[in-house]
């Protein structure tokens, strides 16, 4: 059966990726949500009907709490701003935070997972120990402590997301590296004189990148949610037009008790969609992550 397994292994990445999405509706759904958000963010300035912070007026009066209408699809806020425009501009903030944090999570998680899996010994013990501690920390409170100790803002949010979420990535990368390490071609690299660093970063790293990217895509949703929570609780950057800031303003102005759900529901739904996207992707990738489950 050698030949058969080899054919399977030889699938090349792009076409494999496409086929994978077709075969895994969950992952495809998650990917679609992300793709939509990215498109909206790119074209935010053209899609948004009004500037997000412009205080709109009807005649001389500030256009407060307008209901949904053809002029304002999602109505306006207490200070007379267009909700839809805020929502659309919010995608940029969401993506900026989400992507930066995800890249940071992946970078830290991958490097630590690689070191711990390949080097083993005390390096592995220290990293695993550290990861266990971080995993034990409750996410939101830890972030708030971090944020309150420093100047509130987006940077703190990103740092805390990266600092708190890397262990998940590190764990899976470590376990994949542990099995890659046993592959004969890794040993071959040793025999042919590769340094440990070269083996880790030239031979092993490229093999774990797809998995790392997957974890990164899940982290995007988390990071956006974290940013929103921080902003909602007042630890965010008040000048940034984000979904969290929208929710915080809605809350502060009693939008809930006024029944202005057209104000707070859209950013809430957008956040849920992002988290859902991350969940769908990880769920749809189970076969990729745990190929043994899928084997006959």
């Amino acid at each position: 059966m050698l030949r058969w397994t080899r054919e399977c292994r030889s699938v090349r990445s792009v076409s494999a990726g496409l086929r994978f999405l077709r075969a895994e509706p969950f992952a495809a759904g998650g990917g679609a949500i992300y793709a939509t958000i990215v498109l909206v963010a790119i074209f935010a300035d053209r899609l948004a009907p009004y500037p997000p912070k412009a205080i709109l007026r009807v005649g001389a009066r500030v256009a407060r709490y307008l209901p949904m209408s053809s002029d304002h699809w999602l109505g306006t806020t207490s200070s007379g701003r267009d909700v839809l425009s805020q929502l659309i501009w919010g995608t940029r903030a969401a993506l900026a935070v989400g992507l930066t944090a995800a890249v940071a999570v992946v970078a830290i998680g991958t490097v630590l997972g690689l070191l711990s899996g390949y080097l083993g010994g005390w390096v592995d013990r220290v990293i695993t120990w550290f990861a266990d501690i971080v995993l034990g920390l409750p996410f939101l409170p830890s972030m708030l402590v971090l944020a309150s100790l420093t100047r509130p803002g987006t940077t703190v949010v990103i740092i805390s997301v990266a600092g708190l979420l890397w262990p998940n990535t590190a764990r899976v990368i470590r376990s994949q590296v542990l099995s890659l390490r046993e592959r004969a071609w890794v040993e071959a690299a040793r025999v042919t004189g590769c340094s440990t660093g070269r083996i880790m970063f030239v031979h092993v790293l490229p093999q774990v990148l797809p998995l790392a990217a997957l974890y990164g895509s899940v982290a995007i949703g988390w990071a956006i949610l974290a940013e929103a929570s921080a902003s909602f609780l007042g630890f965010g950057d008040p000048d940034m037009m984000s979904w969290g800031v929208m929710l915080q303003e809605a809350y502060a102005n009693q939008a809930l008790s006024r029944g202005a759900w057209n104000w707070f529901a859209p950013p809430g739904a957008a956040l849920m969609a992002m988290v859902l996207a991350g969940f769908l992707i990880s769920r749809g990738s189970e076969k990729l992550l745990f190929p043994k489950l899928a084997d006959q």
Binding site: L2, A184, W185, A188, T192, C194, S195, P206
Partner: peptide, 28 residues
Amino acid sequence: QLVFQNPFDALNPRFSIRRALAEPLNNF
């Protein structure tokens, strides 16, 4: 040097033959 048992696993799947053969030369 070592000749491996399983040829299907002894070469980095991402490396071309040229790269696989040049690597030891570089390293040494």
